[in-house]
Design a binder for these strands. Sequence first.
DNA 1: ATCGCTGTTGCGAAAAATTGCAATAACGAG
DNA 2: CTCGTTATTGCAATTTTTCGCAACAGCGAT
Lengths: 148, 148
Amino acid sequence: MNHYDMGNWVSRMRDQGFRVTPQRQLILDAIYESGGHTTPEEIYERVHAKAPAVNLATIYRTVDFLRELRLITEMSISGKTYYEIAGDAPHHHLVCRCCGHIEQIDHATVVGLFTRIEQEQQFKVETDHLALVGVCRHCREQATPTAS
Amino acid sequence: MNHYDMGNWVSRMRDQGFRVTPQRQLILDAIYESGGHTTPEEIYERVHAKAPAVNLATIYRTVDFLRELRLITEMSISGKTYYEIAGDAPHHHLVCRCCGHIEQIDHATVVGLFTRIEQEQQFKVETDHLALVGVCRHCREQATPTAS
DNA sequence: ATCGCTGTTGCGAAAAATTGCAATAACGAG
DNA sequence: CTCGTTATTGCAATTTTTCGCAACAGCGAT
């Protein structure tokens, strides 16, 4: 039914001694249905439309839980926290500080850095998302940046 | 007196039409004195010790202001927000998710990635701090990581 | 299908972070 | 030095996020 692999996370959750609850399914659905990244507040509204009894505190607790299980990815973009389904193809975001536009870049682009850090520092980087702030192509063409 | 260049930021602030207030000086001092990265709460306590009248809301507003002026750097490490004096030598942090240990890496290590993104995407990355979560050398030697 | 253990949730309260607004004070001009 | 403009602060109220705890419910065993 849903496009993300339901059976898989359901059993993964149970195998680890956690429980599969309707709330968790609703919240995961809501994040999935939002398409891209979404906020706790948006998730709440979406879930609340279907199941008004679900509490906002549950949203916060559940996104945290789902993040630890690596079913979703948490990202902090200019102060705000967003979540999205952790696809099998990790990607990263370039956030334009002028127009706010967000574009994705492939994990392959950054994996070289992680490998280098692992070799040089013996530190195994596990971060699955970066949000890099800067100025996009469009805004660079239009005007001179703030300084210099 | 202080080791960071006071005269410089004082005039930079004034030149841009902002005002140099005792609160801003105290807060900048507090961040400087903390050595490394510090939280708004810590800044508040440090400032409050010298000037009890300063309000917590002012701390939040001021760190935001100082960040926009690039006098300090904001970093979000496992949910919490930290600030530190923006030295002329930007650096980044490797945060171990096992022992919590934080080590620094030089900007030179990551600048290659930024350059590559600029060339390939025409996106000018301006992020001055990354916090990469993973497993440090020590923890990797000690035990098998969580999974696999 | 029923029972029991214990992981989860809802709820209310607390803590953290943000905001509107009137009072204050920085600083350029005279 | 004094004045006037207006950026900034303190305060209180709001909003956002977290937490403790009793009630609830998932799920393995019977």
